[in-house]
Structure formats: C-alpha cells, structure tokens
C-alpha cells in the first residue's frame, strides 16, 4: 500500500447511537460490513435506509432488521438513488459506505458534494483494492484498475497510475508512461 498523503484512509462502519437516521450505500459484499457494523441493533436498523448494488431478485439479506432496503442492479443506478436519498436526508443523518475502493472513491465524492464530511461519514473497504483512475490527457474515467501501466480505454495513451488522488474527482491520476520513449513500457505491477 502506498503512503501518499492524498490517498484516502478507509475505516470501519460505526453507526452512532445518537444519529437521527442512517443512510447506507453498499456495493455487493459490502453488505456484510453493514450487517457487522449495525450488529443486529434493532433500534439503529429501524432508522436506516440501505441502498445496495446487488442483483435484482436476490431478496433482502438477513440480519438487517427493520431497515428500508433498496437493491439496484448497477453502480450508476445505486449512486443515483443514493444521491436522491441524500437530498431528502434530515439533519443528523449519518452516512455509511462499504464496497470496493473504486466504489468508495466515487461514493465519497457524492457524499462530500452534499456536505457530508467528518463524523457524519463512515467507510469500510470490502473487496478488491482496485482503483478508479482518470486519464489526465483525455479526462476519461476508468473503474477497477488493478494493474499499472495500462492503456487508456478512451484515448489509448499508455498510462502509469501516479500516486496522487483527488477526492473531488474520486480518482487517481493516470499519466502517459512512454512519452519520453514511445512504446517502451515498464513491467506491469499490481496496484
């Protein structure tokens, strides 16, 4: 794991007893961190709204008590729904996010754009530590990047993933890797 200063630090889901309500957005297996974080506390779950990126028809997972549960089939629809719930959220709502790094990259950007920061937000990394990367040349975004270097899926430039993260964009920076020696690429390595 890199030690850069801009890289976000993920934690554990910690629903606060004194929060007026809880808004959860989880991706796939992230729901296991949600279940563990709430720990079967019915009082908290009764105040919770859970947006889950999960296959349609899979049904509500066990252990979520009286929480309102809304499955969505893709990350885009889940985040659109999450944004809608945020817009209606009342004062004192605590937000919880769980999923892959690329999901947390994008979801925290949605939350912070709505002013959710500090103790109002807890996060937990579940699943692959793949990164969301933006090509600095064409500005295209790529999800689930596991290996560097890679060819930009939008403009084709060979990129290295620079250890520099933007919370506003929810992405690491991808920069041309062979500008000074076209076609000469370093050995691929996992991020």
């Amino acid at each position: 794991m890199s030690e850069i200063k801009s890289r976000p630090i993920w934690g554990k889901l910690e629903p606060a007893e004194q929060a007026a309500a809880h808004l959860v957005c989880a991706e796939g297996r992230g729901i296991e961190a949600v279940r563990a974080g709430f720990g079967g506390r019915d009082g908290l779950l009764a105040q919770a709204t859970i947006v889950h990126m999960a296959p349609i028809g899979a049904g509500k997972p066990e252990g979520l008590g009286g929480a309102a549960y809304h499955p969505h089939p893709s990350r885009a629809t889940a985040l659109t729904a999450f944004r809608g719930h945020l817009a209606r959220a009342k004062m004192g709502t605590q937000v919880h996010l769980a999923g892959s790094e690329a999901f947390l990259n994008e979801a925290t950007t949605v939350a912070s754009a709505c002013g959710v920061v500090g103790d109002g937000l807890t996060t937990e990394l579940c699943g692959p530590a793949t990164r969301r990367v933006q090509c600095v040349h064409c500005k295209g975004m790529m999800d689930e990047v596991a290996v560097s270097p890679l060819a930009c899926s939008h403009c084709g430039v060979n990129l290295t993933v620079r250890d520099h993260y933007s919370r506003r964009l929810g992405a690491f920076m991808g920069v041309c890797v062979d500008a000074e020696a076209p076609g000469v690429l370093p050995a691929a390595s996992r991020l």
Binding site: V136, H137, V157, M173, V175, C176, A179, E180
Partner: peptide, 8 residues
C-alpha cells in the same frame, strides 16, 4: 500533465 504525452 494534460499535454505531457506531446511535450515529454
């Protein structure tokens, strides 16, 4: 950086 692939 935006144009590094051109000036590098």
């Amino acid at each position: 950086p935006e144009n590094y692939h051109r000036w590098g």
